[in-house]
Design a protein around this nucleic acid. Structure first.
Lengths: 292, 292
DNA sequence: AATCTGTCTATTGTGGATAAAAGACAAATA
DNA sequence: TATTTGTCTTTTATCCACAATAGACAGATT
């Protein structure tokens, strides 16, 4: 096969939710906007809705016939893009599985294991190489440099430089800047999660990313913002992998974030720097502890 | 065709130079070491040498019959790897040609223009995207962000952070560290070029890269070192493109480098920082002046 | 007049095929 | 015994084909 129609399936599932809340669907371009896909895909979805007797479709009239049932949805594993599948599969291997530094990475083997073509694996590895965990020997294999202590130290060194600089930009933002509103929303979420920490501590990971990304964005520097991708992916998989004391660690980090947010609000560069430093220091410790 | 044998051709040309200086060639593994290729390629070269009556080859005996002539070499354009060809071709388009920010980049068109398959172009674009000059819209085209003033400012902002940090590491290196020797060599070259600046100012570009890379390397941080790739490629093409006042600019930069080198030698962090800042400031000005 | 739909074309994403290059292993040689 | 060579296998780099998806344009509809 040439291409998995994951865009179609994912948009189809999301469109079912739109359908559930109305009695007739909007125009094709509008649906395309809402779902973030082209009209071609929208029309494919509408065609399938018609087949499934979810709607009648005659030009501009798209009348909802019935509510979608669970079995109308495509299974979740069919809506992941190939890139996501490869990434997950690869990260599991190198983070969880005993992958030692210096190990060779074989494109063909990886492709067979994941059940995909070599081209996709190759492209993934090229994209992934910017994270500094693998390295290519031209005309030959890739080498796994490994999620080592050095890696974590080098990563956090740059992270600290970038985030301190970003925090300094943040405090200088005018009050009218939308970042302050987003910061308020994030703060509220922090308080909500802290209030019910035992049940909701798992939501921290996502919130952490949202908060730090907001800070990095105020640097207005594409290299600083792009670098946050590396931090995000490392922490993302790190959270999934290392669950010891997760509740306690997350609670502490949430408190630190709140202090950091307050410091940003003060518009005082010194306070912001201090709060930022304090949080980054403990984030680094947490990361280092998870490495043998 | 599947693969251009550029590795073979390039190694063949280099091997001709080895051949010119001896009466019998060393063992296959040793040649492989010297040329940086596998034995398979070495054997292919030896086979071709035999056909061209450059040597006789019988097992361990590889006796040189005649000196290589200019026509024994493969033409230079056949020894460039596809990746190099694509890079050059692409950089010419976006730096020299009137490529406006926001322009769409079409993989197929690019491939046709360069005379190559789409896969190679795709892989190049993915690798290239980390330089922050292009951006991908999934399932759709790439967008050229352009070599703009903002780009240059963002690039130099990070460069300054990284190089200041690296320079601080450099002054702290123990005297026994090999970097000091390399620094001496670089200094000597600076003086040589300055002494004959009118004829040799074009050698600055390469030396500049060598010097700054040495400084960055002392950070021992892969992210800082990798980032230097971006600076290097930008300045590399920038030097090729913008030749106004090249002699004068290079002379000034050479002087700044010498002051910078002396400051590093002093082991005094303050002096090094100051010299580094001074040079980076003027490098930034030079870069900015070349942008409309 | 503005938007929408029908239809068609162009481009991307992905698997598969193949030559080039790397590399493994045993037999040969110094 | 340590290299080197001959032979064979494996892997990468690259092209190509084709389905999925995006996107363009003219005619239809409000």
């Amino acid at each position: 096969m040439a291409k998995q129609n994951t865009v179609f399936k994912d948009a189809y599932n999301r469109c079912l939710k739109v359908l559930a809340e109305t009695s007739s669907l909007p125009s094709e371009p509008e649906l395309g906007q809402v779902l973030g896909v082209s009209r071609t895909t929208v029309r494919a979805i509408l065609g399938r809705f018609e087949e499934a007797k979810l709607i009648t479709w005659d030009k501009r009239k798209k009348i909802v016939l019935r509510q979608p049932q669970p079995e109308d949805y495509f299974p979740a594993e069919e809506t992941d893009s190939l890139a996501e599948i490869i990434e997950r599969s690869f990260m599991r291997r190198i983070l969880a599985g005993g992958a030692e530094p210096g190990m060779q990475i074989n494109e063909l083997e990886l492709a067979r294991e994941i059940g995909t073509g070599t081209t996709s694996v190759r492209e993934f590895l090229i994209r992934f190489s910017r994270f500094g965990l693998i390295e290519k020997r031209p005309n030959s294999h890739w080498i796994l440099k490994g999620f080592t202590r050095e890696f974590a130290l080098e990563l956090t060194e740059v992270r600290e430089m970038f985030e301190l600089r970003s925090a300094a930009s943040f405090v200088a933002l005018p009050d009218s800047h939308p970042a302050w509103q987003e910061l308020s929303k994030i703060e509220t979420l922090h308080r909500e999660i802290l209030a019910d920490i035992d049940n909701r501590y798992k939501e921290f990971s996502e919130l952490d990313e949202r908060f730090h990304l907001l800070v990095h964005k105020s640097s207005s520097n594409r290299f600083i913002i792009d670098f946050y991708d590396i931090i995000a992916i490392v922490f993302h998989y790190h959270y999934q992998w290392n669950k010891t004391n997760a509740r306690q660690r997350n609670a502490r980090a949430l408190e630190e974030h709140l202090a950091y947010i307050e410091a940003l609000r003060s518009h005082d560069p010194k306070r912001a720097e201090e709060a930022c430093r304090r949080h980054l220091r403990s984030a680094r410790e947490t990361l280092l502890q998870s490495i043998p």
